[in-house]
Amino acid sequence: MRAEVLMYDGIAEMDALLTFDVLARARLLGADVEPVLVTADGRPEVTGCYGTRFGGLARWDASRADALLVAGGWDLDVIEASPLPVLLRTFKEQAGERLLMCGIDSGALLFGAAGLLTGRPATTYRPDMEYLARWAEVVDARIVDDGDLVTSGSGWLAGLDLGLYLVAERLGAPRLAVEIERFIGHDRRGTVWRR
């Protein structure tokens, strides 16, 4: 699985990097996963919401990506001031049904603004649930799995929860997920909702 973690100016560093870290650890332990930090426009550098600069980023590639992971950040500003939601919709159209879309915490709002959640269940960061309801059927669960859409809404640890869920369920490696849990000192918990 090539898992492209979308980076953009204003991204919540922890959300994106915790998921990336879990998947990178899984790769080191033998899982068939390749996490890659990418940008939509090919810029090699972005700045996170707390001022952290990330460099050496690749351009996303719809022909190669198996999963697109989108973290939250200063989402309302991003939604209102950037072309990112339109680019997300275009990327999904190019990649087709095989692409697994993953919203990390308030990253689900970007999928909503892109028109990718209409009539679908999703979760997000609790303070953003009312906003998410503009587009999606909001489910108050830690993980919501709706086939080609998986969202995680557990707050600051959403990135860990999503990464561990992907390792256990999508990579079919639950024992490896437990090994990573022990290594990082975080146990999965909370409700997983599936259609």
Rank of each mutant, 00 (worst) to 15 (best):
A3G: 09
E4F: 04
L6K: 04
M7S: 05
D15C: 03
F20A: 08
R25K: 14
A26L: 13
L28C: 13
L28S: 15
L29A: 04
E34F: 02
P35Y: 03
P35F: 02
P35T: 03
D41M: 00
E45H: 00
V46T: 08
T47G: 12
G48P: 11
Y50H: 07
G55A: 15
L57D: 02
W60F: 05
D66K: 12
A67K: 00
L69Y: 06
I79M: 08
I79Y: 00
I79F: 06
I79S: 06
A81G: 10
S82R: 01
L84C: 02
L84F: 03
L87T: 06
T90K: 05
F91Y: 03
G96M: 08
G96Y: 07
R98Y: 15
M101Q: 11
M101R: 13
C102M: 10
S106D: 03
A108C: 11
L109Q: 09
L109E: 08
A113F: 00
G115H: 08
T118S: 12
G119C: 05
G119S: 09
E130S: 12
E137G: 00
V139S: 13
R142D: 09
R142F: 08
L149P: 15
G155K: 02
L160M: 07
L166P: 11
L166T: 04
E169D: 13
R170Q: 07
R170H: 12
L176I: 05
L176S: 05
V178I: 10
D187P: 13
R188V: 11
V192L: 10
